[in-house]
C-alpha cells in the first residue's frame, strides 16, 4: 500500500503547491507589471501586499453565483472544472528535482506525448464555456480559443519533436539528463534556439495571454468566453490560466533550461528543487514582461503567423535537426 499512499501524498502536495503558486503568481504579476509601468501595485494587504491573493480569493468565494437564464446549465457549470483539470495534471510528468521522489509519475517514457495530449485537451474548457454561456461574445471567444489553440499546438509539438530528436527520448527525465553534462551550453536553448523560440511563442499563445489574448480581447469581445462568468467559476478559470502559466514555465525550464540541473546537484539533491524553482520564476517574469510590453495581434495575423510562419519554421527545424544528427554534428 505504500506506493499508492506516497502517490497520494505527492498528489496532494503538488496540488497545494500549484494552488499557492497560482495565488502568488497573481501577486507577482501585479507587482511586476506595476514596476514595469512605473507604478507600485498592491501593497496594502499584509506586508508588501503579501495577503492580497488571500483577500482576492475570499472576495471571489463569497460572491453570488449567477447563471444566465438561457445558458446550458450543465456545461456552464462543468466548463470551469474542465478548464482546471488539464492545467493541473500537466505537472504529473515534470521532474521537479534530481530524485525520482520529486516527480509524481516518475520516469514516463512517453512524457512529451503525455504533455502534448494534455495540452491538446486544454481547449475544451474555454470552448465549452463560450458555447454554454449562450452569449455572442462568449461564443466568439470560445471559437477563437479552439482555433488558436489547435493552430499553435502543431508548432509547439514540432518544436518538441526537435527536442526529442536531440535527447533521443521522449522521457522528460532523459531530456533533463541529456542537458546536464558539461557546462551551461549543454542546455537545449543554446543548441536548439529555434525550437526554444517557437516553444516560447506557442506557449504564450496556448496560454492565450498577451500578445495572444484574442480569446478575451476586451475591446472586441468584452471578456470573451469569460463574459458570463463570475465568482468562484471565474476564479477557476483564472486559476487554470495561472497554473498553466506555471506549467508552461516549468516545461520551458525542463526542455530548454536544463530542468533541475545545476552545480552540486548530485551532492545535495534538494538544490535541484531550488534551481528548478528559480528557472520557473524567471520564466514567469519573462511571460509577465512580454505581456507588459507587446500589443495584441490582429486575429487573421495570428492565424497566418501560426500556420504560415511558425509551422514551416518548426518543420524546417525538425528536418535540420534530423540532418545534423545524421551527419553527426550533434
Amino acid at each position: 500500500m505504500a506506493p499508492i499512499l506516497l502517490f497520494f501524498l505527492k498528489s496532494v502536495a503538488l496540488i497545494i503547491i500549484a494552488l499557492a503558486g497560482f495565488a502568488y503568481t497573481t501577486l507577482l504579476e501585479r507587482r511586476f507589471i506595476a514596476r514595469l509601468q512605473a507604478r507600485i501595485g498592491p501593497n496594502r494587504a499584509g506586508p508588501q501586499g503579501f495577503l492580497q491573493p488571500v483577500a482576492d480569493g475570499l472576495k471571489l468565494i463569497v460572491k453570488e453565483s449567477i447563471t444566465p437564464a438561457q445558458a446550458d446549465k450543465v456545461i456552464y457549470f462543468l466548463a470551469p472544472m474542465i478548464a482546471v483539470i488539464p492545467a493541473l495534471i500537466v505537472f504529473a510528468v515534470i521532474p521537479f528535482g534530481s530524485d525520482p521522489i520529486f516527480s509524481l509519475m516518475g520516469d514516463l517514457n512517453i512524457g512529451v506525448l503525455y504533455i502534448l495530449a494534455i495540452l491538446s485537451i486544454g481547449v475544451y474548457g474555454s470552448a465549452l464555456a463560450g458555447w454554454s454561456s449562450n452569449n455572442k461574445y462568449a461564443s466568439l471567444g470560445g471559437l477563437r480559443a479552439s482555433a488558436q489553440m489547435i493552430s499553435y499546438e502543431l508548432a509547439l509539438g514540432l518544436s518538441l519533436v526537435a527536442v526529442v530528436l536531440m535527447a533521443s527520448s521522449a522521457s522528460l527525465n532523459d531530456i533533463v539528463k541529456y542537458q546536464q553534462p558539461g557546462n551551461i551550453l549543454g542546455w537545449l536553448i543554446f543548441r536548439q534556439p529555434i525550437a526554444a523560440i517557437i516553444f516560447a511563442i506557442c506557449a504564450m499563445a496556448e496560454l492565450a495571454r498577451a500578445p495572444f489574448d484574442l480569446v478575451e480581447a476586451e475591446q472586441e469581445l468584452t471578456a470573451g468566453f469569460l463574459t458570463e462568468y463570475g465568482g468562484m467559476k471565474f476564479a477557476l478559470f483564472y486559476m487554470s490560466e495561472y497554473v498553466k502559466m506555471i506549467a508552461m514555465s516549468a516545461l520551458f525550464a525542463t526542455f530548454f533550461l536544463g530542468g533541475w540541473s545545476g552545480p552540486f546537484v548530485n551532492e545535495v539533491p534538494v538544490l535541484s528543487l531550488v534551481y528548478f524553482a528559480i528557472k520557473v520564476v524567471i520564466g514567469l517574469l519573462i511571460i509577465v514582461w512580454v505581456r507588459a510590453t507587446l500589443p495584441r495581434f490582429r486575429y487573421d495575423k495570428l492565424m497566418s503567423f501560426g500556420w504560415k510562419a511558425l509551422l514551416p519554421i518548426g518543420l524546417a527545424n525538425v528536418m535540420l535537426t534530423a540532418l545534423l544528427i545524421v551527419l553527426g554534428v550533434y
Binding site: S120, V123, Y124, L143, I150
Partner: peptide, 13 residues
C-alpha cells in the same frame, strides 16, 4: 480528444 473531437465541437458551434 485533442484534435478530432475539438474539430467536431468547433464545427457544431
Amino acid at each position: 480528444a485533442g484534435a478530432i473531437m475539438v474539430l467536431f465541437l468547433f464545427v457544431i458551434m
